[in-house]
Simulated scan of single mutants.
Amino acid sequence: MPSFTLPVLSAALYRRLLRYVVPYRWEFFVAIIAMVITAATEPLLPALLKPMLDMSFVHKDPAWIHWVPVMLLGLFVIRGIANFISKFAMNWVGNKVVMDLRRQMFERLLQLPVRYFDDHPAGVLISKLVFDASQVMTAATTVVTNLVTDSFVVIGLLGWLVYLNWKLTSITLLAAPPIAWVVKKFNTRLRSVNRDGMRAMGGITT
Rank of each mutant, 00 (worst) to 15 (best):
G197Q: 11
I81P: 08
L125Y: 03
T138I: 05
P62H: 03
K50M: 08
L174F: 14
V144H: 05
K96Y: 06
I65M: 09
K128G: 10
K128A: 12
W67R: 03
N165M: 01
F186C: 06
M90A: 13
V162P: 00
K87A: 11
F28C: 02
Q111G: 02
R15A: 13
L110N: 08
N146P: 02
F117P: 00
K87T: 11
L73V: 14
V154R: 02
D132P: 00
V143W: 14
A63I: 13
G94E: 10
Q135F: 08
L13E: 06
F131P: 00
A176L: 15
M201R: 09
W166D: 01
D119V: 05
H120I: 15
T5S: 08
W160R: 12
V183R: 04
L147E: 02
L49R: 03
A39K: 13
P51G: 13
L75G: 04
D132E: 11
V22M: 09
K185D: 03
A31T: 06
L109P: 00
K184R: 13
P62D: 09
L18M: 14
P46S: 05
F152H: 01
Y24H: 15
V136E: 07
I204F: 15
P113C: 06
V93Y: 05
A89G: 00
P121W: 04
G156N: 11
V182F: 07
V182G: 05
H66I: 00
H59C: 00
P51W: 15
V97S: 03
M55D: 11
A47M: 10
K96D: 08
D100M: 12
A39F: 12
I126K: 14
A39D: 07
G197A: 05
H59Q: 14
W67Q: 11
N165A: 02
A63C: 01
F76Y: 03
A133L: 01
W64G: 06
R15D: 08
R103Q: 11
L158P: 01
N83G: 07
P178T: 09
M71A: 09
K167L: 09
L17C: 10
P7G: 10
L109C: 02
Y163C: 10
T5E: 04
V30F: 15
H66R: 03
T188I: 07
F84T: 03
